[in-house]
Computed example of a mutant assay.
Amino acid sequence: MWNTNNMGNKLKHIGVLTSGGDAPGMNAAIRAVVRACTHYNIKVSGISEGYQGLIDNELRGMDARSVAHIINRGGTILKSARCQNFRTKEGRQKAHENLKKNNIDALVVIGGDGSFTGASIFSSEFNIPVIGVPGTIDNDIYGTDFTIGYDTALNCVVEAMDRIRDTATSHNRLFFIECMGRDSGFIALNAGIAGGATEILIPEDNKSIDDLVDKLKSSRASNKTSNIVLVAEGDQLGDTFKLAEKTEKLLPEYSIRVSVLGHIQRGGNPSCADRVLASRLGVSAVEQLLAGHSGIMVGVQNSSVTTVSLHDAISRKPGIDTDLVHVADIVSL
């Protein structure tokens, strides 16, 4: 429990919004923010559809009961949207006017790096206290070991791999499975190890099609009965369907199929880990504001809640774990 004697007494009303792509656990984070505000006797308003709702003045008061029974739900009850208008000074000015109209003193923004970029600019322009909460399945935010939604997305990919492997084994087929990861391979690398992929293709690892073919030849020579290649959507070898076609031409003995998991990775009930993480970070966001802090993101490192500046969260990227790449190469024999 925080020492409330150290908290500022000027904070009376907090706004909370979700922005960018939805992630399982966002509702748990909203719930934690609202109930932390209730605990500390602070008024809280939910802002619909991210920054667009702030511009359109789509706000509603929330209390502990209004967030009942949402911790287990995927998506976001506040809804989310990408807002081009907020990229303009005029749009942000209108958003600021609505904050003043509703007497909102500070914001909690749940989202990814794009959301944090908007929050950082908005905060500096109008001197509005802002705390970021990392909600994105990609886990590509600097300053936290895990982002809200990542664990659930991982479990979704691994479950899909397990199901597809049944078909791959039954028909001696090679499957290319594409998972999300436009700019990072965190999902593909970890799910690939857990799901027993023969090869994992991620943006951070410059594997060529020759490397892939050599690995598949070796696998076939060792009498492996099923093969799965897990591909992050942003891998440098390009379109997964075209990659599968090239591979089939080079290895005609394989019957190749492609499965794109797409947006099913975003949906579904959040895992226990994501619910707990979201709860911890939502409460911490409110307490950071009460302590007079702004322009930071709350995260978790080495099992402890920590903070990092929004600038660092935006401008720096977490590196891929090279030890895991090494492990993947060994266990995929």
Rank of each mutant, 00 (worst) to 15 (best):
N5P: 01
G8R: 11
N9S: 15
N9M: 14
K10Q: 11
L11E: 10
H13F: 02
I14V: 14
G15T: 13
T18N: 07
G20Y: 01
A23T: 09
A23E: 06
P24V: 11
R31T: 04
R31N: 10
A32I: 08
V33K: 02
R35I: 11
T38C: 11
Y40A: 08
S48D: 09
E49N: 14
L54W: 00
I55R: 00
N57I: 02
G61E: 15
A64F: 07
A68L: 13
I70D: 07
I71F: 08
R73H: 11
G74Q: 07
T76L: 03
R82I: 03
C83A: 09
C83E: 03
Q84I: 13
K89D: 15
K89I: 11
K89E: 15
Q93W: 07
Q93V: 14
K94L: 14
K94I: 15
H96D: 11
H96R: 13
N98R: 00
N98I: 04
K101S: 12
N103Y: 06
V108I: 13
D113Q: 05
S120N: 12
E125Q: 09
E125R: 00
I131K: 00
G132L: 00
G132R: 00
V133L: 02
T136F: 06
D138H: 04
N139H: 03
D140G: 07
Y142F: 14
Y142N: 09
I148W: 06
D151T: 13
T152L: 06
A153W: 06
A153Y: 09
A160S: 14
D162Q: 10
D162E: 10
R163V: 09
I164P: 01
R165I: 05
R165W: 09
D166M: 05
S170C: 09
L174N: 10
F175E: 08
I177K: 10
I177D: 07
C179Y: 05
S184L: 00
F186T: 08
A188W: 00
A191D: 03
G192T: 02
I193D: 04
G195H: 04
N206G: 05
S208D: 01
D210V: 11
D214A: 14
D214L: 05
L216H: 02
R220K: 13
R220G: 08
T225P: 15
N227Y: 14
N227P: 05
N227K: 15
N227A: 15
L230W: 03
E233L: 05
E233V: 12
D235E: 04
Q236M: 09
D239L: 04
E245K: 10
E245T: 12
K246L: 12
T247R: 02
T247N: 01
S259L: 08
I264S: 10
Q265D: 09
Q265P: 14
A273D: 14
R275W: 06
L277G: 10
S279P: 12
R280T: 07
L281K: 06
V283F: 06
S284I: 05
A285K: 00
A285P: 01
V286L: 01
Q288I: 10
A291D: 08
H293C: 11
G295Y: 10
M297S: 08
Q301S: 12
S304M: 13
T306V: 11
T306K: 10
T307Y: 09
V308Q: 11
L310D: 02
D312R: 15
I314R: 03
R316I: 14
K317L: 13
P318I: 14
I320G: 04
D321F: 04
D323W: 04
D329C: 08
D329H: 14
V331H: 01
L333Y: 13
